[in-house]
Simulated assay, not measured.
Amino acid sequence: MRLNMPKLIRLSTERFVIRTLKPGDASERWIGWAADPEVMEPVNTKPAKMTLKELQNYIGSFDQSRRVLVGVFDKRNDLHIGFYAITRSEKQRTATFNVIIGDKDYWGEKVVLETRAALLDHFFDKEGVEKAIGMPLARNFPAVFNYKAQGWRLEGVLRGQCRSAKGGKRLDQCQFGLLREEWRQMRKAGRAT
């Protein structure tokens, strides 16, 4: 499948809507997430004060083909609670998933397991992706837990792979992988979250 045409994504789970983000989705809530150390440090990003225009430019930088940005919205109230940035490789047929749930009221509520399952179904079944990749920092225990709980395989720990955004200390990074056929087998067996 060719990646040069942007595609709009709109998926629905039991509790959430996952859809393509546009510059008009920039909000003061999201700006608050970017400035919150509790939200940004687990993904090794310095908290930053952004303007609405800077956030709109960030959202607009995604081509929705090779670099995909989708938001997670609560179905009950249409509240934007987080987002996925997904990088695709047409040549390798891979998709690398990064997620931030910025609204702390939703932490510990299995948002990532529910929404990422819908995204995996979409990318494996409709976008020709053959392998999903996740690369959380080893110290990001909630992310590591979520990958393992969803059946991803830990393929390795890259020692000292990244420099900490806070202080420059070397940090270990995990690499998780999930093949399309593994996901389909888990779905068929009813084991996939």
Rank of each mutant, 00 (worst) to 15 (best):
V17M: 09
A35D: 11
A85I: 13
R66A: 10
S61Q: 11
S65F: 02
L52E: 13
V144Q: 01
Q64W: 08
V70N: 05
K169S: 13
T94S: 06
G156K: 04
V17H: 10
K7F: 12
R76K: 15
T94H: 01
G128H: 11
L11G: 09
L120E: 03
M1G: 14
K188H: 05
F97G: 02
L113N: 10
Q150E: 07
L154G: 06
G60I: 09
G190W: 01
T96G: 06
Q175N: 08
T51P: 00
P136E: 05
Y106I: 06
F123D: 05
A35T: 04
H122W: 14
T51D: 07
F141M: 11
G128M: 13
K7E: 14
L120F: 12
I86N: 01
K169N: 12
L69W: 03
N4L: 12
A189C: 00
K148T: 14
Y147W: 13
E155R: 11
A192G: 09
L119E: 06
A34V: 00
A34L: 11
T115L: 06
P47D: 10
E127P: 06
G151Q: 02
V43D: 09
K53N: 07
P6I: 12
A143T: 07
M5C: 03
D172G: 06
V17Q: 10
R187G: 05
Q173Y: 01
P136K: 07
P6M: 13
V111S: 04
R180K: 15
G156S: 06
Y106C: 07
E114C: 05
D172N: 14
G177I: 11
H122F: 15
R184C: 00
R163W: 03
K131F: 03
G167R: 13
T193Y: 05
K110L: 04
S61P: 06
M135K: 15
Y106P: 09
A132P: 08
D36I: 00
V68F: 03
F124G: 08
N4W: 10
K148R: 15
P23N: 05
P23F: 03
A26D: 08
G190A: 07
G160L: 08
N44T: 09
G177D: 02
S61H: 10
W183K: 02
G190R: 07
I86A: 03
D125N: 15
S27F: 02
I133F: 04
Q150D: 11
Y147R: 08
I18G: 06
P23R: 08
G134T: 09
I100N: 04
T115C: 14
L11F: 07
A26H: 07
R67Y: 13
E90Q: 13
M40R: 13
L119M: 14
E14Q: 14
L179N: 04
W33C: 01
F97P: 01
I9M: 06
Y106K: 08
S27Y: 02
R116M: 15
